[in-house]
Design a binder for these strands. Sequence first.
DNA 1: TTAATTCCTACTATTTAACTAGGATTAGTA
DNA 2: TACTAATCCTAGTTAAATAGTAGGAATTAA
Lengths: 132, 132
Amino acid sequence: MKLSSKARYGIFAVAQLAKNYGKLTSVNELAISTGVTEKYLEQIIAILKQSDIVVAKRGSLGGYELSRHPSEITVGEVLRPLENNLEIVDCLSGKCSGRNPKCLAQKLWCNLYLNINNYLDSITLQQFLEEQ
Amino acid sequence: MKLSSKARYGIFAVAQLAKNYGKLTSVNELAISTGVTEKYLEQIIAILKQSDIVVAKRGSLGGYELSRHPSEITVGEVLRPLENNLEIVDCLSGKCSGRNPKCLAQKLWCNLYLNINNYLDSITLQQFLEEQ
DNA sequence: TTAATTCCTACTATTTAACTAGGATTAGTA
DNA sequence: TACTAATCCTAGTTAAATAGTAGGAATTAA
């Protein structure tokens, strides 16, 4: 139940983009402010791009920005693609049999999963920044 | 953010003990019903014993039972010792500086941590069994 | 043409989880 | 006392996932 570094770095990167909303920000700038290598951040942001959280402009003077206003992106939306959809157990589909010990407490895990997601979806990036 | 096998197996083992409340249950019996090896279960139960969730009787005809009635033990109590205290990030103490990227979203992680714990502490083993 | 940027993909190292294993200790029973 | 069924203790091994490194192709502005 530890959060991955991707999730931690990703949230911070996105927070930086939220601060710079309206302007393009390069990975290099993000790397400086987060203390993470550019190469690793690139991978993290690539995931966020695929999930339509950020958009990119390539080439010289290019960079990234949020696809929507920080008030329209939730923390949950950012974390899910970085954190294996926030699935705390493999067996959340409801299809699995009660035989597999992984699934024996399925309702419990499912409710916990919903709880976590509901909480994280209740916080927008804007709220997150204001709370800091 | 995946739950460990210790947590999954542990919850199920404890559920079995709750069903057998008042009687001693051997690791062998638990192993059969969970499908986990005795040796691994022993380790899991040792942790629960240290946390005063279960008590043991040694020797022939020995076994384990819950230290309290299933209505007086919460799921959170069981999971914490098995799951590194449910600390989703290392940095929940409040002491750490904002410099460490791990800590930059500290309030967020702290609130998520509290949310998870509150939820899991709201469910007793008895309720958990009834829900199945 | 050059420089600054994103994009793509393969590889490696590190850490942690998951499990295996052996045998010591304890206690009930005959 | 001897035997057996159980917990207890601890070290070692394996497998998988995470975290990070690396090189270079493609794109775009000036």
